[in-house]
């Protein structure tokens, strides 16, 4: 199933998404920045969502943020179960990212500061995950 999901993600994604996943493989959290209207946005796109310009540059995000919300999925097929996933508010103020959160569900709290790391899933993709700084 992973092979098929990976293939779908790559064949059905635009250039920006493919480059984002390539960035993860190199352990970088990337997004696009508009060189015309100067808007930094996430996730990356092939056009700027503000001015529709294609004149974009790639930037690496700091990978720091705060936990906005989190839950635990019983059937998350990718990791050792159970699997904590959550929303992290990115430090750059460009919104939230859905990610895996490394840590015990019962020890996590809304507002905790977290930092990105990368996890290589065999036969699949490299994904971002965030770890609390305090635990």
């Amino acid at each position: 199933m992973f092979e098929r999901m990976k293939k779908i993600i790559f064949t059905e994604s635009d250039q920006a998404t493919q480059k984002f996943y390539q960035g993860l493989k190199e352990h970088k959290l990337l997004t696009t920045n508009c060189l015309d209207c100067k808007k930094l946005f996430f996730p990356p796109q092939v056009v700027c969502p503000q001015c529709l310009s294609n004149n974009l540059s790639w930037v690496e995000l700091s990978g720091r943020g705060k936990i906005y919300a989190f839950t635990q999925q019983e059937r998350g097929p990718l990791f050792t179960k159970p699997d904590v996933i959550g929303l992290v508010e990115l430090e750059e103020g460009i919104g939230r990212v859905l990610t895996r959160i490394e840590g015990e569900f019962s020890e996590l709290k809304i507002g905790m500061e977290v930092e990105v790391s990368f996890v290589d899933v065999p036969n699949f993709l490299t994904l971002h995950q965030f770890t609390p700084l305090e635990i």
Binding site: M5, I8, I9, E12, S13, T17, F20, P43, Y68, A69, F70, T71, Q73, R75, G76, P77, L78, D83, I85, G86, L87, L98, T99, R100, I110, F124, L125, L127
Partner: peptide
């Protein structure tokens, strides 16, 4: 089912909207 959550969230194995609603309720 998984393809609905393409291209980013799907990679975390999301199959239904339940986790999103869980986070909404938590908030």
């Amino acid at each position: 089912l998984n393809a609905l959550f393409m291209p980013y969230d799907s990679a975390y194995g999301i199959m239904t909207a339940t986790p999103y609603y869980a986070m909404s309720t938590q908030r």
